[in-house]
Each structure stands twice: as structure tokens, then as C-alpha cells.
Amino acid sequence: MGKSRSLLSRTRTRSAWLVLLPMLVTLFVVAAWPLGRTIWFSFTDASLDLMADAQFVGIRNYLEYVKFGDEDGQYYGLLADARWWRSVWNTIYFAVVSVSFETLFGLVIALVLNQQFRGRGLVRAAVLIPWAIPTIVSAKMWAWMMHDQFGILNDMFQRLGLISEPVAWTASPDTAMIAVMIVDIWKTTPFMALLILAGLQMVPQDIYEAAKLDGVPAFRTFRRVTLPLILPAILVAVVFRTLDALRVFDIIYVLTPNTDATRTMSVYARENLFDYDQFAYGSAASTLLFLVIAVITITFIMATRMDLEGKRS
């Protein structure tokens, strides 16, 4: 019996790798290999037309000191590029502010949807709609609503007395980032709300009953009981959204193209790769963005000791 069991388990193991193979090969060709090539290109002089003959040039794309004379010289490369650092800052600023507001609004919406009231199903359906709308479409819709002359947003705000004259939301450097963040917050708050709602629904109802009987004010119950219990769900949602926000591209490309005020790391990288014919330089930017995201992801996995084998479930 023992022998046949082990034979069986060995054939099972072999067939496991066999059925895994197509998926693994696909992921290797679409993910691992291209990533490796991107990193390699970042250390070469590759250009769009000459990829195969790219020569290794060391870290020149990242940093290089060029001597002009005896004492004189200047640093070149990504790490010495003010535009790059501006886009790093833009990305971080965008991610932090957007995700904060999304968490706050998502929490409010989740708390509302967690109540029993008439028409709850309809409200939940309505909340999902921004999530269902393609990012490009959202960006275009808002671009029209934020139009400086004919936009309904300026009209509304003027009627409400919030602004005295029309604002060029997307064109002016002062408001371009705000415009982008409004669209992102509008579009992704539903995702946040759903994840937090899933956390809320796992909180046992009798806790609330007990707190109510003891006369604990609703806000105290929320802070002392609900919030600690849903904090893990919120954290997971925040990490997912942050990783997403750090690679933002579509909204900015459509809503505010070509402004220093909103250029993010992804936009910077693509510009160099395909618009400015600086393929190697753009690859270096892509590589750095990948590193940033990898560090955050690994930290997150370590910190939460993710349950991969399903032992705890």
C-alpha cells in the first residue's frame, strides 16, 4: 500500500508540473523575460530601431559624470535629471493624496452600505458605476465637465458661489494635479468601499447589540470596536490601491498631457521610450519604478506573512 501510494503521488506530482507548464511558459514570456530585457536595456545604448545590437554601457543611463575640463564637469543621467525627480515627487504626491481620500470616502460609503435601509441594493449598484466606466472614458467625461469655457463644473461652482470666475482645471499648472486626483478618487472609491464593506460584513452583529444595550455612543463603538476589526481589510485595500496609484498612466495621459505639473514616473518612462527615442533611458526609468513597487510589495508580504498554502483558512 505504502509503495503504491508513493508511486501514485509521484505520478500526481509529475502531472501537476505538466498541467502547470502552459501557464508558466505564458507568464515567463509575457512577464519574466520582458522584465529582464527591460532591465538589460537600461544598461545599454539601445534605441527603438536597434534593440538587438544594443551595447552594454554600464550605469550611464542612471548616472554619469562628464568632465568638461580640468576642474569642471557635470552629472548626467536619470538620477541627475530634475524632470525625473519632479515626476517621482508627482507620483508619490498623487498616490498619497488620492489613496487617502479614497480610503476616507470609501469608509463612509461602506458604513452607509452596511446599514439596513430601503433601496440599499440600488445604492450599491449606483456606487459601482464609476468603477465600471473605463478609465479613458472617465478621463474624457471629466475633461469635458472641467472644460474652462463650457464645463458644467465651473457653472456649478459659480452658481454655488465657490469660485468667482471660471477655472482652467486641466490646463492651469496650479489645478492640473487636483483635476487628475478628482477623477482618480471618483473612479476608484467604489473599489475601496467594496473591500472595506467586505471587512465590515465579517464583524459579528451581536457586538453592536451589546454596545447598544450598554449605551455606548455610536462613535465610540465605531472607534473602539469596528475600526480595529476592519483595519486589516482597510490596510489590504490601501496597499492594493497604492500599488495601483504608483503606476498611474491613463488618466494623466488623457486629461493633462505634457505638463510638468502632473507627469508621473510611468508617463515619464513611456515618453522617453516611444516619443523621444531614448529607449535605454526610458528603460532605466521603468526599472526604477519597478524597484520601488517591488520593495513595497515585498515589505507588505513580509509584514502580513501572507497565507499562501491556505493552511489558516
Binding site: A31, P34, T38, S266, I293, T297, L308, E309
Partner: peptide
């Protein structure tokens, strides 16, 4: 290696699309 494999697959979903863009373009 099952756990490690699943972790690898999952980590691919964290890849920023831009990080594979130049390599994928070549492929």
C-alpha cells in the same frame, strides 16, 4: 515549491505594466 510558485504567480500581478513595456515591445 507549491507555495513559492503561487507567490511568484501572484507577484506578477504587482508588476507595473510600464516595467515590462520595452521588453514586451521587443518580444
Amino acid at each position: 515549491g507549491r507555495g513559492l510558485l503561487l507567490l511568484t504567480v501572484l507577484s506578477v500581478s504587482m508588476f507595473p505594466q510600464i516595467a515590462v513595456l520595452s521588453g514586451l515591445f521587443e518580444v
